[in-house]
């Protein structure tokens, strides 16, 4: 799941280490797969396919969501 990025600068590596110490909960974020963005994209498509947004006609025309659903906070 997680792969470590090769940082050229050890300074940045140290900075990252610092953030790890302070916010250990964030360490497991998979930088290779944008989970939040994928969730947002999925929600957008599902809302469209299932016509979940209020006030939208049930026509066959594809609807474009003007408001994007906010991704739930992790």
């Amino acid at each position: 799941m997680e792969k470590l990025i090769n940082f050229k600068s050890s300074l940045l590596g140290a900075a990252l280490l610092g953030t790890m110490v302070i916010l250990p909960a964030c360490v497991t974020i998979n930088i290779y797969f944008p989970a939040a963005a994928a969730e947002k994209a999925a929600d957008k498509i599902i809302d469209d396919v299932w016509q979940l947004k209020d006030g939208q006609p049930n026509g066959s025309e594809p609807t474009v969501n003007t408001k994007e659903p906010t991704a739930p906070a992790k």
Binding site: I31, P34, A36, A37, A38, K40, A41
Partner: peptide, 9 residues
């Protein structure tokens, strides 16, 4: 920032 960018759909 990079990861949070929208996916192309």
């Amino acid at each position: 920032g990079m990861a949070a960018a929208d996916l192309e759909i």
